[in-house]
Design a protein around this nucleic acid. Structure first.
Lengths: 304, 304
DNA sequence: TAAAATTTGACAAAATATTGACATTGACTA
DNA sequence: TAGTCAATGTCAATATTTTGTCAAATTTTA
């Protein structure tokens, strides 16, 4: 299955040869002898790939239990020191909301370690895209609203931002598959100070084989265009949260669109983004309202 | 095993020759005669490497029990910081400078992956405190200067900030030892927008058994005091880079000092910090000019 | 029919191991 | 002062193993 290829970042040859030589992953077959990989198989292949990238020889690790592989990676990359801990799993729909709730409690307690533990739990128990879209996204929004209210202290907001940014930044790094795809710039334009949205975009792009470059918030049009050129980016993605009536932003975006080459697509996302679409040539810009949408769009563009 | 090379920072040649000549570490072998290192082997190699860097000859220490090696390194530590014109520190200083140079190249290429790789290399090759003080610190300063010059683009600065922050944030988390010590707040006061310095403080504190809370930049005195109270922090650390003549900052600091309980120490660090010492009661504030200094101070305070 | 998947055998590139040599360095000695 | 020598890291040459990729033949899918 070529789905496996896309999701693991391995070549089909490699997957088959690992199966043939080491029985690293032995998938089920259809009646017509096609391989059928489960999510667990995919996950295991990803772990194997990561471990081999860290220098382990495939011959040695191919037969390890998956749990040992996770342990191995944790030892190599001392970035995820959290041992999993069992917890009554909530109903799938409300599960994300529960995590958001718990995260907020940790923030209120100014407890960075607890917040991080919650995020780690959530990211394990949810699929990546769900985690980003249903935990990180709502959490950010909630923090923003409470902050507007005045019912969240600045220090609480700061702590949350610091922890979330490091966590998602790690996710991006960890989920980077090999550089098969083209470049993508993720940032926010002048006046937009919140860059977590752009970081989410970079993370999703990384898992899909793109080569994302995250440039943080508040970047002038010229800078964005320059970076896009230097990185030969085929996509520039901007996150625009608020306000919906920035008098400069419209022209800034128009200018950016003008600077970008014909072969570079502009993607806008974020709550306030629709307000600025009229400033742009509809043929040159794509508005995405969710990360799943982004995922689809990147998938459809990547082969061109 | 190539893993050994990556995790110890030694060359494969060195590892083999140490084995051949001194039996420093004799790993198990596979059927096909490949070396297989255990975690303990790796740890021992790391210790040996560190010890040889401190000037011990490998021939003398290669056969020592691992416990003695640890002892040896502990004994060396306090000696290292002292001699400023000593040769070892000169060589390692040069080594750090090389890393800084390479990091800058990666930044100029807008290559986040390369930058991160350099940081990882440097952090393996240098002791933690040196890495923070001689690589991260100078790199931040260099970036600041180039940015003032206008010879560093905003996008480059943003990228560097994002990568460095994630990297150091990870370090803090990873080096957190069990929470034996008291609480510490690391942040910057109103007007101070650069928070990497505070992050460094949190990292050093984490390694020393303190329980640091990093609150990001630009926090009003009331917020800082509130967070300190809530976290029962015994130390509040502020990083003050520039400018040295902020008209509000003096009174802000005085106010903060007033809010803090008698048992809470205020630590100031950063280039512009000395300018604001006159605003504070000398008995209630400590100025630290380097991370090593901070390390000493925390060590002397922690047992009280 | 064209594209994609499977199997098998083969091959080339990369990694590892072994051995011996070489250059540098610092200490000791004539 | 110059020379000797041991210690140490690096390198080259060669043999062996490991591993990713490819090509060809065949089957399945769209």
């Amino acid at each position: 299955m070529q789905v496996a290829v896309r999701r693991t970042g391995l070549t089909s040859h490699a997957i088959r040869v690992w199966e043939r030589r080491y029985q690293a992953v032995v998938p089920h077959r259809t009646d017509s002898n096609r391989r059928l990989y489960t999510d667990a198989d995919i996950q295991r292949l990803k772990l194997l790939r990561q471990a081999t990238k860290n220098g382990h020889s495939i011959g040695h690790i191919a037969q390890m239990p998956t749990a040992d592989l996770e342990e191995l990676l944790r030892a190599d990359e001392p970035i995820q020191p959290k041992p999993a801990e069992f917890r009554p799993s909530a109903t799938t729909g409300a599960e994300a909301a529960i995590y958001v709730e718990r995260c907020l409690s940790a923030i209120r307690a100014l407890n960075a370690a607890a917040l991080e533990e919650e995020l780690a739990q959530a990211s394990i128990s949810l699929s990546q895209i769900k985690f980003l879209e249903e935990v990180i996204g709502p959490l950010q929004q909630l923090i923003g609203e409470l902050w507007q209210d005045g019912s969240l202290r600045i220090s609480e907001e700061h702590l949350a931002t610091a922890v979330v940014r490091t966590f998602v930044g790690n996710m991006q790094r960890k989920s980077q598959v090999p550089p098969t795809g083209s470049g993508l710039i993720a940032t926010t334009p002048t006046g937009q100070l919140h860059d977590i949205g752009a970081l989410l975009v970079a993370t999703v792009a990384a898992t899909m084989g793109w080569r994302p470059t995250f440039l943080g918030p508040n970047l002038p049009a010229e800078e964005i265009a320059g970076a896009a050129r230097q990185n030969q980016a085929r996509v520039v993605s901007l996150s625009i949260i608020a306000p919906a009536d920035d008098p400069h932003l419209g022209s800034e975006l128009a200018r950016l669109s003008h600077y970008l080459g014909e072969d570079t697509t502009l993607i806008l996302g974020g709550r306030a983004a629709p307000a600025y679409l009229p400033f742009l040539d509809p043929a040159r810009v794509v508005y995405i309202e969710s990360l799943q949408n982004l995922q689809k769009h990147l998938a459809s563009t990547s082969n061109v």
